[in-house]
């Protein structure tokens, strides 16, 4: 036990920036995933981090060309802004691909699945073609949680704060348009505008977190807690709070497991997210009120 604690303290001391970034992302991404789960957009939830990842890979590929890389001078790491900008570019192209007439008829999801596959393949090719090959490919598969820099940590914290404020402020509109379009429209909420707002929030979160943590971690946090907990959650607050709790708990568990067992964080996080979310399912369905007694159902 003592060795675990000392390993934990050492890891926190060494990788505090990565740990904080991971916890922040783990708090906000599952809550955003709830909106996508209520909208029944699992492939979109997969496609957005994948396109952000392809954009970052594009940044890895294009930066040495822009910076004039030569064999004598190894390329410097691409600036984070370039990775985010690359992500934004590819993401906008991706959203244009899945939007349009098909989206209104409810068949945007198959296109999102194609986008996910295309973006994943493109990221792999771009990273292989970049001079960073080994390191960049490792980032694609395992992220770089342990090497997040303080600037990266601040970007994630800033994004988490901004998205949290917007999510809390507009939670009713975001949820209502997600669960019932007709009710939302009659309640004066333009469904298309709020669908765009939802995708914009998810995109912002992915654009900032993917270059720091890697696409797999972001995808797992966005998808797993919401898919496992939303179908059991009896109220909206329960869905939002429990998915965030699952995300943060998974992040702590994954970090601890990774440090103690000396294994990469990404696969540890994916598995711990599945395990923790599954363990919280009974809590999502728990009804403290009992039959016939109302607890405050408002949000």
């Amino acid at each position: 036990m003592e060795s675990i604690i000392s390993a934990w303290e050492l890891a926190i001391g060494l990788f505090a920036d990565g740990f904080l970034s991971l916890v922040c992302a783990a708090a906000i991404l599952p809550a955003l995933g709830v909106l996508l789960a209520y909208r029944r957009l699992p492939f979109t939830a997969m496609a957005i981090p994948a396109t952000a990842g392809a954009g970052a890979a594009f940044g890895y590929w294009v930066w040495p060309l822009l910076a004039g890389f030569t064999l004598d001078a190894p390329p410097t790491p691409p600036p984070p802004l370039l990775l985010v900008a690359g992500g934004l570019l590819i993401l906008l192209l991706g959203i244009a691909f899945i939007s349009g007439r098909e989206e209104r008829s409810g068949s945007a999801e198959p296109r999102a699945a194609i986008l996910f596959l295309g973006a994943t393949a493109a990221a792999e090719l771009l990273l292989q073609a970049s001079p960073y090959e080994e390191a960049a490919s490792s980032w694609l598969r395992q992220g770089r949680v342990l090497s997040v820099l303080p600037e990266g940590r601040w970007r994630v914290i800033l994004m988490t704060t901004l998205v949290s404020v917007l999510l809390l402020r507009h939670r009713r509109a975001l949820l209502l348009t997600a669960v019932d379009r007709d009710l939302a429209v009659t309640a004066g909420l333009p469904e298309r505008r709020w669908r765009f707002a939802t995708l914009a929030l998810v995109s912002l979160a992915c654009l900032v977190t993917v270059p720091e943590l890697g696409p797999h971690i972001v995808l797992a946090l966005l998808l797993v807690p919401s898919i496992l907990l939303v179908p059991r959650a009896v109220t909206f607050p329960r869905a939002l709070l429990l998915t965030s709790l699952a995300g943060v708990s998974s992040a702590v568990c994954a970090f601890l497991t990774s440090v103690v067992l000396d294994r990469p964080v990404t696969p540890c996080l994916v598995l711990s997210t599945i395990a923790v979310s599954a363990a919280l399912r009974p809590l999502a369905a728990l009804d403290r009120a009992g039959a016939g007694r109302l607890v405050r159902p408002t949000l």
Binding site: A187, G188, F236
Partner: peptide, 16 residues
Amino acid sequence: SLRTDQVVASGGWEGG
């Protein structure tokens, strides 16, 4: 999955 009172409450979210 939602409790009936939650479904009913959502009807009162006029304009969000």
